[in-house]
Nucleic acid binder design. Sequence first.
DNA 1: GCGTGTACTGTACCAAATAACAGTACAGAA
DNA 2: TTCTGTACTGTTATTTGGTACAGTACACGC
Lengths: 222, 222
Amino acid sequence: MSDLTQRQSEILEFIRSRLRDTGFPPTREDIAREFGFSSKTGAQDHLVAIARKGYIELVPGNARGIRLLKGGDEVLSHQFELPLIGSIAAGTPLTAATNVESWLRIDPQLFHPRADFLHRVSGHSMKNANILDGDIVGIHAQQDADNGQIVAAVMPHPKTGEDEITLKRYFRRGRRVTLKPENDAPAYRPIEIELAPADGDSQEQSPFRIAGIYAGLIRPRG
Amino acid sequence: MSDLTQRQSEILEFIRSRLRDTGFPPTREDIAREFGFSSKTGAQDHLVAIARKGYIELVPGNARGIRLLKGGDEVLSHQFELPLIGSIAAGTPLTAATNVESWLRIDPQLFHPRADFLHRVSGHSMKNANILDGDIVGIHAQQDADNGQIVAAVMPHPKTGEDEITLKRYFRRGRRVTLKPENDAPAYRPIEIELAPADGDSQEQSPFRIAGIYAGLIRPRG
DNA sequence: GCGTGTACTGTACCAAATAACAGTACAGAA
DNA sequence: TTCTGTACTGTTATTTGGTACAGTACACGC
């Protein structure tokens, strides 16, 4: 259906999500920041390409002058839908199109705080928090969390090495982070992480990052 | 309905029309030009007033950072909405308009079996089934149930006498029905009910009826 | 009469944002 | 091999747009 390249449709999807979340389109700089470009020209080039293919219209000289053309009513319907995020392709932003398993028709505003995406829980590690295997949790996207909050952490799977989302209760003291499962069984051990010192020049990748905080759940069966 | 002044609602309407037509909000200068102000400060003052009254949100430092809050003309089909049933007015069918507290935008097909209506749980009587106070349960409407299923039972409140919905685990042996809470605390006692003999002419009201079976839940907060 | 809110004009500053120019690198088709 | 398109980095010029400050005028309630 799409004659857009992978990257281009990711960017188009980002524009849609920004419209959904903030009510207005992103700037070139917003796009560059989201995808990790160091220059906004990269974003501009993509926009021109997407516009040339007829998916958006660029209004010259206007800040945020991006108008969606195709799939316009899709934007409206996406207002009450949430992406279900499965596994995470390396180096992609979380809600990139490739990581979206499906869209579920649920009003994001049902959750408090508002949910930005969904994730299906597998396993029983959060049993004591009444989050069960097969539940779909709503996650409010944010980069940090308070002590004791349940977070969606992104970290490589111990065996496959592929990035995945897990729910854990978050505690931090200084540079020491503890991610604690909520299950008394001995198999469930807290994960201890020592954050790299924050010297601006460090190239080191943190072993995990917070994708957001737990904002509620859906249990799809009785 | 509107605590906005004449001028303020004109400006709000202009913002809406711009979003419809161009896909992004107007700038202060756009507004000033439209209404013939010679200075954009006039527009800014109006925006601040409208924001203060809760109709829009201004995102500081962002070009066109205007977000609509109220009055998004949401003409949505009920196809992807479910009624939240609160207390039940005497002699009304369950999903009669009077009993509907609100409509929540959730795809009924998310639940298995499909949900026909929702009900907010109050109390901890189903704690062991991992259904908590404040959870919103999806109910699949049907008149009977299998032994061991969790049902939404309609019965008069012991004090007020008003019909209400409660969740219980359902067991039936002959004419004897047991509605069992899922909580070990001694305060939660099973309810035992003797059904009236089923002679077709009986005018007798059964002391309870099954509104449907539990089909899953939504927990709206983290 | 005084304070408060609405409805503007006019000036000014500066961060936000667009947009153009000059590159590099790589992949696939002609 | 050359050409075209994608996917960027880096720099700079210029405009757009937000916001603060200082006013004027009028209406309304206390």
